[in-house]
Design a protein around this nucleic acid. Sequence first.
DNA 1: CCTACCGATCGGTAGG
DNA 2: CCTACCGATCGGTAGG
Lengths: 240, 240
Amino acid sequence: MTQMQRQPNAARSQQTAREHVISLAERLLHPQSSHEQRLLEIVKTAAAVFRERGYEAGTLEDISQQLGMTRPALYHYVRSKQDILFLTINYLLDIALAELNELERQQDTRERLRSLIIHLITLIGRERSFFTVFFRDKAGLEEPYLSLIREKERAYVAAFRRAVREAMTAGMLPNIPEGIATQAILGCCNWTYQWLDPAGPVPLEQAAELIASFLVDPHPTHLAGKEDTSAAVASDGQGQ
Amino acid sequence: MTQMQRQPNAARSQQTAREHVISLAERLLHPQSSHEQRLLEIVKTAAAVFRERGYEAGTLEDISQQLGMTRPALYHYVRSKQDILFLTINYLLDIALAELNELERQQDTRERLRSLIIHLITLIGRERSFFTVFFRDKAGLEEPYLSLIREKERAYVAAFRRAVREAMTAGMLPNIPEGIATQAILGCCNWTYQWLDPAGPVPLEQAAELIASFLVDPHPTHLAGKEDTSAAVASDGQGQ
DNA sequence: CCTACCGATCGGTAGG
DNA sequence: CCTACCGATCGGTAGG
């Protein structure tokens, strides 16, 4: 890597800066060189720091100290604090989209929607720091990075929406506008980052399945004339 | 009032500063003097600024400029930026709790839960700035203010939980642990601050009712063999 | 990758 | 003496 730290705000540097961080982002999902692996460590540490203090209040000093390096040394890997925020959020979306693609192959309509819900909740539980930064500090992104993130976000929501549409058509969900139903379900899942403790009394997987059952009734009772929901009611536990 | 601005960090000053801002907060819901009314304007402007830029990035300069005053003039009303954040979030919770108390008188189990859901969603739509600051920047609160806010938050959640418990016992919700069901429903409602545009194509009230119908089935299909609930559905006034 | 710094801007406070 | 502020500047810290 050649050294280019000298002209941070020059016109041509702005363009290359964008290309630079995007090429970094693309390689971060599967880091190969030790340089890329170190960058991934920086991103993970940044997620923890930003989660704890927020993007604005969290400092590069916090990040570098946790990594045992000096603050100026960070500039060997990135060009700005903004770069780190982008890499952090982009890394999360890349993970989510990659895992999503595998789930979409699921054939059964109910199981596909259930899988998407359970996967999202467990992913949030596993990557709590990344999701907190994503949900809370996304607005701290400047253009064009914000647009890039929004595009990936839309792809994720679109997959959810397809599953919701099919489930609703099949009578597995109450019949309301599909966009609203999609956001309602996503809200249920996303909000778990605020309250569902992966180390809490209810195991993450189990909580995710309970929420999925809450949203997508195990029995298609929303279709007229269906009966026999007594099995679900029989397990009446007033727990928690 | 004797002048005490001299020792900002002295032990006794910390105590009076706390008492000072709490007494301000108590009077903000029903401002009487012109001084209190002006403080309320500051709080509302702060909510807009913090929503747009976040608590850390939003400056007192932004707030004072929008109000046509100088930044030092803000210190005639509050003692710190932190005070403003606390007053902002506390004001929102006081509004929410006051309106909640009226809704809890609702007798019918299904309608009470529906009312809580619809009320929360419409309140979020109306007070978008306050809720954004609350959800996103709450962690910026220091003690003891954070604990005061958490207590009011718990009271709000507890009311929701009571309504959820009754609805679940009556078979109007899928049977899962009531704490998880409560958070799932709250998540659905709270997340609307991220996507539900009060000026969007679907009117706020209507969207809120659709989401309520999505969460609490208009027909108690979760209880086995109950057919005679049609009377309750017929008699309830659908026209809020 | 460090030491040694910069331009700017922050929240908060002085005297009047 | 009170209220409602202003112009100027403080100490400290941010990203770079």
